[in-house]
Nucleic acid binder design. Structure first.
Lengths: 221, 221
DNA sequence: TTTAAAATATGAGATATCTCACATTATTGT
DNA sequence: ACAATAATGTGAGATATCTCATATTTTAAA
């Protein structure tokens, strides 16, 4: 991680103004941070003392289970907060966050302005909306996973992540995201090819039956 | 649902004071409501305009999937908010909430004091903590479900819900809560009996190998 | 008290998903 | 350019979980 200063700092601060999130002047408490691709922003199990507002990039939220399984819980995309729960609950154990691309964040020195933040209705209201959405999202992911087999969830994910009719995510990552084994993911992809929904190409899978894919995805909602 | 007045109202308002949640006088906006056992507080799919603070009782949060499966997402226990997300997001479709026992709630007329609530840092801070916990809980439920078979999750649930060494929840409900079929729940319970962890009695299952049960439950965390 | 509805129980056969072992490509660091 | 590492791909056999059918018992409503 490197802290940007001078022109670079000014560039990002101007490009992504966030003063309307707060009813006090937040700039004295800000730093602009740049994380390299693949870098860890939060180490799993640590107790962070910084809150970030991600303005450019994409990251992954991870957790490791006692049995060694790893869950890729969510992809986090700019703009959004990270480490906000730790602001509310002292010393809360955090999950791991790793960048997918080079990522630019505004870091907010919470030790210095925690009091101000927790007394600021404007900020708190926005945080409530954000946390409410997070809770709702996790709830629906939770219930969908219970109610539908991979066939449907994968169809929905392919729709979401494909670009110009091509799906080319890394299997090793997606099986962690969808919570199934690598083997099983490949089985279902093979089955989609079998059923002529996808066609395997050199680099990625080509969607050839959009309608049927949509049908499978729609069953979820 | 009936609205309590007179003495009954006074009794509950005195017994569960919540003025320290707000920095303005909330009492003019409160009603004390009593719901019978089995009554629905929110109908699934409706757009509620009331927020509740449950002070006595226990309820269940439900949702129905397109494929007809029903998920019992969570048991909600007093004291806590219900319908708070709808305060933040206009016209949000709600999940269903049904009481398990007779339930007493303070209802807050949000149409009347929404502005005040959304400008009140004291209330918003508490709401943030609540929503943050909710998000964290759902996240860990989600990942646990992905990472562990029923054997472990059921062991943990039996520990949680048993009383004096006896487990006697309704199977029909618990299979929805744990997200498995009724049949499979019975299989795993039978397996626990087979392994002498539980013993089936007339009314409920008796825990006879606390240590082994704990071991299975602990694998989750 | 009788009857209908809900909850409990169990068998049998199907499917979804996992584990493990191993072979074959890509990718990446030096 | 080479070696090490990561990602891909496949088979075989196990396990977790589901669906459906059907019987019995318990609970609640008329």
């Amino acid at each position: 991680m490197q802290i940007l200063t001078g022109e670079a700092r000014q560039y990002y601060i101007k490009k992504y103004p966030i003063d309307d999130f707060f009813s006090f002047d937040i700039y004295p408490y800000l730093e602009v941070c740049q994380f390299d691709k693949g870098e860890w922003i939060f180490q799993e199990g640590s107790y962070p003392d910084t809150m970030y507002y991600m303005i450019e990039g994409k990251t992954k939220l991870y957790m490791t289970h006692k049995n060694g399984k790893v869950s890729l819980i969510e992809y986090l995309e700019a703009p959004r907060f990270m480490g906000e729960i730790e602001l509310l609950n002292e010393a809360r154990y955090t999950k791991g966050i790793q960048t997918v691309t080079t990522t630019i964040c505004l870091s907010i020195a919470t030790q210095a302005c925690k009091e101000k933040l927790l007394a600021d209705a404007l900020f708190l209201r926005r945080l409530c909306v954000f946390l409410g959405e997070k809770a709702t999202t996790m709830t629906s992911k939770y219930t969908q996973n219970q109610a539908y087999p991979l066939e449907n969830r994968l169809a929905a994910f392919i729709q979401l992540s494909s670009d110009q009719g091509i799906y080319k995510e890394k299997h090793t990552e997606i099986c962690e995201y969808l919570g199934v084994s690598y083997r099983h993911l490949l089985y279902v992809l093979a089955q989609f090819c079998e059923e002529k929904i996808l066609e395997k190409q050199k680099h990625g899978y080509h969607i050839i039956d959009e309608r049927r894919l949509n049908q499978l995805a729609q069953e979820i909602q």
